[in-house]
Design a protein around this nucleic acid. Structure first.
Lengths: 179, 179
DNA sequence: GTCTATATAAAGATAGAC
DNA sequence: GTCTATCTTTATATAGAC
């Protein structure tokens, strides 16, 4: 079962961008790993930016679904579910968004165009609960950081797999951080 | 009281790299903000890399001091102090290291040369305590994430100042995450 | 769909005048 | 210390043959 070229390009690009960053990853590098010329690559994508868009399209949609759900509930009502959803997001096939959003060259361009910070804001609001104040916001951001960082740490230790035990542990730590 | 050119360059570069990333910040951009030519800039620094090194020299030394202290204690003994030290580090004049270490283009080059991940490892070890296991490591990374992310969130809300209340709150959240 | 070749722009860096 | 001018490399992207 052959994987089509478009998919291979995205896999290679995702890999390179994850380790080097978007700004420091060149079309030439991607083409080299692909085993073809740069021109061949431009047959499949009309720009470097389009490659980034293609990589992040599904992750963005998945995150949007998550934030839509979080926004529908009243703030603070289902904080634990939101944290669990974030853990599963980072552990799942859309994890690259969580990795890329730390890259300033992505943040500066793609993230602004796609309102990524707004979505983060929605998650925070849903964790904060009613009557927000500085303390609650700090705790909410702390909890979200635990969900993200804890999960990627667990994945690194578990060969890319998140055990149910680890998941439970991360969620508990995030809930504790939330106070 | 004039600020010397070298310092101005570092201030400008630190600013640009923070928002755009190292790989996406060019000498030309720095020179433009400086109000001089690129050649003038090369009189003060012989390469782009040297600018990065100069920016991070003090922060690296400060972090090393922190990890040396953490490594001297027996593991798990003074976890709260370590977390507090990390909060103050992120809130202090060396905060740019915490910002830069999220940039893959910095991680890929500078961080490897300077064993940044080793230093992170030392901090984790000092938080984990004796008889490490997966759970303890997850909790340690969670706590460290709270210290870092919580602090930068608090700084963003407080115009760059970390109030004593916020500091107490972040530390408490980190300790809770640690379990 | 892939190639070679090339256009075009931007990057890092240097030479030498002032 | 700063300038203009230039070198060299690398980047994104395209043209046109196969």
């Amino acid at each position: 079962m052959e994987v089509d070229t478009r998919t291979r390009i995205l896999d290679i690009a995702r890999d390179l961008i994850t380790t080097q960053g978007y700004g420091s990853t060149s079309i030439a590098q991607i083409a080299e790993k692909l085993g073809t010329s740069k021109a061949a690559l431009y047959y499949h994508f009309k720009s470097k930016e389009e490659i980034l868009d293609a990589i992040l399209a599904e992750p963005l949609a998945a995150l949007s679904e998550l934030t839509d759900k979080a926004a529908a509930d009243q703030p603070g009502k289902h904080a634990e579910e939101v944290l669990a959803a974030m853990i599963d997001f980072v552990a799942g096939p859309c994890s690259c968004l969580a990795a890329f959003e730390k890259d300033p060259s992505v943040l500066h361009q793609w993230a602004q165009r796609n309102n990524l910070l707004d979505k983060e804001e929605i998650l925070i609001t849903s964790l904060v609960g009613p009557k927000p104040n500085t303390t609650k916001i700090i705790r909410a951001r702390a909890a979200l950081a635990v969900a993200k960082q804890g999960t990627s740490a667990a994945l690194a230790m578990g060969d890319g797999e998140l055990s149910t035990d680890a998941r439970k542990e991360i969620l508990a730590a995030a809930v504790r951080a939330l106070g």
